Simulated assay, not measured.
Amino acid sequence: MNYLKLKQDVQAGRVAPVYFMYGTELFLMEDLIQDILSVTLSDEERDMNVSSYSLTDVPIEAALEEAETVPFFGSKRVVILKDAALFTSQKLDVEHDVKRLEQYILNPVPETVLLIMAPYEKLDERKKITKLIKKESLVLEAKPLDEGEAKAWLSSLASELQVEMDEKAIETLLGMTGLRLTQLASEMNKLALYVGEGGIIRSEDVTLLVAKTLDQNIFDLIDFAINQRTHQALSLYHELLKQKEEPLKLLALLTRQFRIMYQVKELGRRGYTPNQMAKPLKIHPYVAKLAGKKAASMSDQLLYSLIEKAADTEFAIKSGKVDKVLALELFLLTMGSRESVG
């Protein structure tokens, strides 16, 4: 089921007896679990009625015994099963009584909410237990949110924090964090405190309070250098050096970004959407979208020239021909010049 729909159902008090969460976006799993705990148990009840087990250490039958135990001083019990690799093709360190789990899934205890976490990209869909859990439980595929989902999630989070957020502020925040959900949640809490209950978060608030990621700084560095805003490019470069960023690392990130922009342009000409570009390029669709916007103002010849020039700069540094700090500075100075394309 869609993450936002699951979240809304839980917040409305519609909690199922068994949840199965799988995928690579652990933040979504943990966020849903916190919502379930909030509506299921009071703070006082949590100490006695929440149990968590890692299935890399504990056999499933031991955890299910806990799930079948009557709650203490409350009407509900929550049992969390982590690292549920038994739904994958991985070799298991602990032997599990899978039949016992099958029986529980088909006849769950009404007073217990069983949360099963399988933080893996791929499941073994051939296994009977995998087919059964996906059929009989509420399923969350915890994959990275796309741009639309991320915007909806931010709007929902703003409501929870009792603030509003305009569309431009959402765009600015997504651009500065690159859809990293843990960082987004942290920054939203900071912004909500800044504007206060009932306040409106605007783009200028985001720019003022949110620290740029290294990827965002690399984007800015390219922008400044290509558009011959030399003073800004060098100021940002030296600020990154003060933050202990290595010139060779920065050069590698610049080169990677040039390649992504070149590839995005080529795939765009072939009719690919950002979503379709994401998998072959191993980037988030939103990153592909941003790269496409940036690349639109740059010719293929310029991008190819910058990739070549970056390789030459790397060779010069590694062969000891030039100081690494000076080499990258010279590279930035020539990025927007005619020599870069000829």
Rank of each mutant, 00 (worst) to 15 (best):
G268K: 12
A311D: 05
K289V: 04
R270F: 15
Y237A: 09
F331G: 06
E329S: 12
Y304Q: 11
S297T: 15
Y272A: 15
L236I: 02
A278V: 02
T313E: 03
K279A: 14
P280H: 11
S299I: 06
A327E: 07
L281P: 04
R256C: 09
V264F: 04
S235G: 00
L251M: 06
E266I: 13
G320E: 09
Q243H: 07
L303D: 02
L254G: 00
Q257K: 07
L303H: 04
P274T: 10
R270P: 05
K324Y: 00
P274M: 11
A310W: 03
A327Q: 05
V287P: 00
K293R: 14
L254E: 03
A310S: 15
Y286N: 09
M277H: 07
L281M: 03
L250S: 07
L302A: 11
K279C: 01
R270D: 14
L290F: 00
Y237N: 05
T273H: 14
L306H: 03
Y237F: 07
V322C: 07
Q276N: 11
V287E: 06
L306A: 10
H284V: 01
P280F: 14
A296T: 08
S299H: 02
K318E: 05
G292H: 08
I307R: 01
K244I: 01
I260G: 02
L303A: 02
K282C: 05
K282W: 01
I283R: 11
P274K: 10
K244E: 11
V264G: 04
Y304E: 07
V264A: 01
Y262V: 03
L328F: 08
V264E: 00
M277T: 06
Q243I: 08
S319M: 13
G268D: 05
P285L: 07
M261F: 01
Q243V: 06
L236H: 01
M298S: 04
N275S: 15
Q263F: 03
F331Y: 14
L302G: 00
T273I: 11
E239I: 10
M277S: 08
M277C: 13
S297E: 12
K321E: 12
K289N: 06
L281I: 10
V264W: 03
P285H: 07
E266S: 09
Y304I: 12
A252Y: 08
L240Q: 08
Y286P: 10
T273W: 15
Q276A: 15
I307V: 11
M277Q: 13
L236R: 02
F315L: 15
A278P: 04
S319V: 12
S235P: 00
E245T: 06
S235W: 00
F258K: 04
E329L: 10
E245D: 05
R269Y: 05
K242Q: 12
Q257L: 04
